[in-house]
């Protein structure tokens, strides 16, 4: 059951990712990426990381991708402005990527095999994470708010018209 779910989610994720990088229209790409994120969230649930699954949907699929969509639509970038890229370079890129994948996979092929318990383990529960976050990681958590503040200020300044 879990294996079937894993396979389905994986196929959805990989397929949507491929669609994302191949589709001509940026809006389509964004929508395909949201699908990928949903699939990944499914994986999180399989791995019993409910908190991250929720956050992933809210932050990525909800906030970030909407932001992307916003920009694309507001600036009207959906038009097929992208000219055909240098064919040779594209082939080189694909070959390079394939080799990259092969090498990485080959590197992990010999790794000692360890099991993952689907739907088990309490590491990803909201209760546990909350405890850890607000005890061990309280300082980074607070600092991240500063990060956000600076990001807000930065983006406002950058996009402000002269």
């Amino acid at each position: 059951m879990a294996t079937i779910l894993f396979i389905i989610l994986s196929i959805v994720a990989i397929g949507s990712a491929l669609m994302m990088i191949t589709s001509k229209s940026p809006v389509n790409s964004i929508l395909w990426l949201i699908v990928v994120f949903f699939a990944i969230s499914g994986h999180y649930i399989l791995l019993n990381a409910q908190f991250l699954a929720v956050v992933n949907i809210i932050v990525y699929a909800g906030a970030i991708m909407v932001l992307f969509l916003f920009v694309v639509m507001l600036m009207n970038l959906n038009a097929e402005t992208e000219p055909a890229k240098n064919q040779r370079q594209q082939i080189i890129a694909i070959i390079t990527g394939g080799c990259f994948l092969l090498v990485l996979l080959a590197a992990f092929k010999t790794a000692t095999s360890q099991q993952v318990m689907v739907g088990a383990g309490n590491a990803g529960l909201i209760k546990t994470l909350g405890k850890v976050l607000f005890t061990n990681y309280i300082l980074p958590f607070e600092i991240s708010s500063v990060l956000f503040l600076s990001a807000i200020v930065g983006s406002v300044i950058i996009s402000k018209k002269e």
Binding site: A2, I14, T81, A93, G97, G98
Partner: peptide
């Protein structure tokens, strides 16, 4: 379920991202 499957899936997605960066010109 073997961790290797997750590794493979993750690497595949990562590589797709890399290829996307390499092939696309839209920022």
């Amino acid at each position: 379920m073997d961790i290797k499957y997750y590794i493979a899936l993750s690497l595949t997605l990562f590589t797709i991202g890399v290829i996307g960066v390499l092939t696309r010109r839209n920022a």
